[in-house]
Computed example of a mutant assay.
Amino acid sequence: MPELCTDRLLLRRWRESDLEPWAAMNADPDVREHLGELLTRGQSDAAVALMQAEFDDRGFGWWALEARETGEFIGRAGLDKVDEDMPFAGVDIGWRLMRSAWGHGYATEAALACLAFGFEALGLSEIVASTTVNNLRSQAVMRRIGMTRDPADDFEDPSVPEGPLRQCVLYRIPSGKPTGYTTQRDTPRADV
């Protein structure tokens, strides 16, 4: 599993020590506001096992996100194959951060590293991102990393029951579009 390193972040393989803070994130109503039900510890642990297995199988997926200065686990970021039941296809970019990590630009920094990996290492021609209509914070990150939205692409998520989380927006970015991504070169990286 390649690691990605930015000025402030390390995107790395999951560790046993990540399980407790990851579970706490998934039990936080603010973090889960646009994601649905809170998860139990067992569900959170199972999600990490699945993310690791998918990364090992495909060569890309969800990295654990660590603040380099403190070594603290602060969330996840990565790329995922779009589910087959969605009304669009491709590779999706995403992030989820602990509430204490919000407002520091970490999501944008991690997303830019993921874009670079997707375009440079994986050779993707396009990366998409989706979220609920009301998740304005994530939509702001999507715009900051150079993604654009066509309202004609908005959709209802078939995996979500009727309600406010079902209505979603879709953002896209083609390869070759400048993102302004820069990294430190002091840590070995697989993406460049």
Rank of each mutant, 00 (worst) to 15 (best):
K177R: 15
R12P: 05
Y181G: 01
G61N: 09
F60D: 01
T182S: 15
P29N: 05
K81H: 11
G176Y: 08
L65T: 09
Q43W: 12
I93E: 03
W14A: 07
L122D: 01
A190S: 15
R96I: 07
A89Q: 14
A77V: 07
D18Q: 02
E54N: 03
T179G: 15
S125D: 15
D7H: 15
F73V: 08
P161V: 08
R143Y: 04
G90E: 02
C168W: 02
E33F: 05
T183N: 14
R68N: 01
G176F: 11
M147H: 07
Q184G: 15
V169W: 10
A53H: 04
R96S: 02
T148D: 09
Q167Y: 06
Q139K: 11
R185E: 15
R144W: 08
L4Q: 02
Q52I: 14
W62G: 06
A110D: 00
G36F: 01
L11Q: 01
M51K: 11
V141T: 07
D191C: 07
G78M: 02
L10K: 09
D45T: 13
V133W: 13
P87I: 08
G146K: 01
D154P: 07
F155M: 03
G78F: 04
C114H: 02
W62Y: 07
T148V: 10
A47P: 09
R137P: 09
V133N: 10
G163K: 01
D83Y: 14
E69A: 15
I127Y: 06
W22G: 10
T40K: 10
F73G: 04
C168V: 03
A111S: 06
W14V: 02
G36S: 10
A24Q: 11
D150T: 07
L39D: 08
D85H: 11
A47L: 12
R15C: 10
T108S: 15
E162T: 13
T108M: 14
F119C: 02
D83S: 13
F119G: 05
A89R: 14
T70Y: 02
Q43C: 10
G176H: 06
A140Y: 09
P21S: 09
D157Y: 06
D186C: 15
E33N: 10
H34E: 10
D83H: 13
C114Q: 00
A113M: 05
T132K: 09
P188V: 02
I93P: 01
L170S: 00
P21K: 08
D80L: 15
R172N: 10
G61E: 09
A24N: 08
Q139Y: 06
M86L: 14
G59F: 02
V31D: 01
A23P: 12
A27L: 08
G78S: 05
D191R: 11
G163A: 07
L9D: 02
M147I: 06
H104V: 00
L115T: 05
L112S: 01
E162D: 11
E72A: 15
A67R: 15
L115S: 05
V91E: 00
L65E: 01
L79G: 03
L38K: 09
E120T: 14
C5L: 13
L122F: 03
R32V: 06
P29G: 11
N135K: 10
E120A: 15
L65G: 07
A101K: 07
P161F: 12
E84L: 12
A110Y: 04
C5K: 14
A24D: 10
L9S: 13
P151S: 06
A89K: 14
E69H: 13
W22E: 08
P21F: 06
F60G: 00
T183P: 13
R76H: 11
P188A: 13
D57L: 13
I127A: 09
L136W: 11
